[in-house]
Amino acid sequence: MSGAPPSRAEALTRLTADLRAAGIDTAALDARLLLAAAARLSTIDLYTWPDVPLDAASHARLAAMAARRLAREPVARILGQREFWGLPFHLSPATLVPRPETEHVVEAAIAEHARIVAGRDKSAQTGAPFTIADLGTGSGCIAVAAAHELADARAIAVDLAPDAAIAARGNAVRNGVGDRVSVIVGSWASALADRCADLVLSNPPYIETLDLEGLDTDVKDYDPRLALDGGADGLHAYRQIFADARRILRPDGAVVVEFGRGQAAAIADIARANGLLPRPAILDLAGTERVIVATLL
């Protein structure tokens, strides 16, 4: 990345080759995203005028970004944001990078919202708004996406890390749902009142403690340990979430949780032990069991 500033096309080709040589599988996509950000271009600009030389400032920004990516820092961390559910989410060191698999939690929440609303006796309504509790909210991606999709819903987003709570609050405002998303610093549902939620949503930490050091550098060195470490068996957070579920859920409510490979049966057992009925696991796009919905008995 040294010497006279290259054209846009040359810069893209060189960076793609460098990333690919470093063993980065997403080299072409990463190079395109970094170049667009460094040169403050749209993808259309990049391909419509490929022979335009990069100015010196853009070239310097690209070189700095390239060095960070070659050190295995995720592109989303370098750019400071990631898209989720078609919405932009700013990141902080205290938040996970939102991943596509987590959108299945939002999809399940939308389906459960329709079921709960349709099944309620209108004469028995209390006037309380449909409420979602997002436990371990991180960037707020689940709570914000659900509130954005469900105009009649409000969300309570909870995170133990104050910096994550700040990020979640900013993302709620940024995506136009700041008036319907409340953010609380706390441990899972401990700060929530009885019968306060229709849905409990969560993508909690589910990696076994001894497996953390074996994670890819992109995750191990850049995602917060608090959001990764699920305890000795990876299930510590699920026990806490389901232990409080019956207390905080309203009638006909449900819990929707994401989990890791091979954990579906154990999480279903935890749900049953706490008086909830788990449904068969929802598969992600790779065919892996990824989300469980558990309803009140």
Rank of each mutant, 00 (worst) to 15 (best):
A157F: 03
L79N: 10
T102F: 05
E101I: 12
H59A: 11
E149G: 10
T95I: 00
A111H: 11
G127Q: 07
R154C: 09
V75N: 03
R154S: 05
F130S: 09
G80D: 10
V106L: 04
V75Y: 04
A64I: 01
M65S: 13
R61M: 00
L79Y: 09
A124V: 06
R82A: 13
T131K: 05
F84W: 07
L62C: 01
R69M: 15
A71C: 09
R72L: 13
R99S: 03
R61S: 01
E107Q: 14
R77P: 12
P74K: 14
M65D: 13
C141Y: 09
L87R: 10
R115T: 12
A60C: 02
H113P: 00
L62V: 01
V106Y: 02
L91V: 12
E112G: 05
V106W: 01
A63T: 15
A118I: 11
V105I: 15
E101G: 13
A153K: 05
G136D: 14
A128E: 15
V144F: 11
Q81A: 15
A71P: 08
A66N: 11
V106D: 01
L135R: 10
A133D: 01
V106G: 00
E83A: 15
F130W: 10
A114T: 00
E101C: 13
R72T: 12
A151R: 13
L150W: 04
G140E: 03
G140W: 02
G140D: 03
A64L: 04
E149P: 07
H104Y: 14
E101S: 13
A133H: 01
I142E: 04
R61Y: 01
I116F: 07
A145S: 15
A114N: 00
A109S: 10
L79E: 10
P88Q: 14
P129L: 09
P100I: 08
H113W: 02
S92E: 13
A153W: 05
S139L: 06
A155V: 11
L62W: 01
A143G: 06
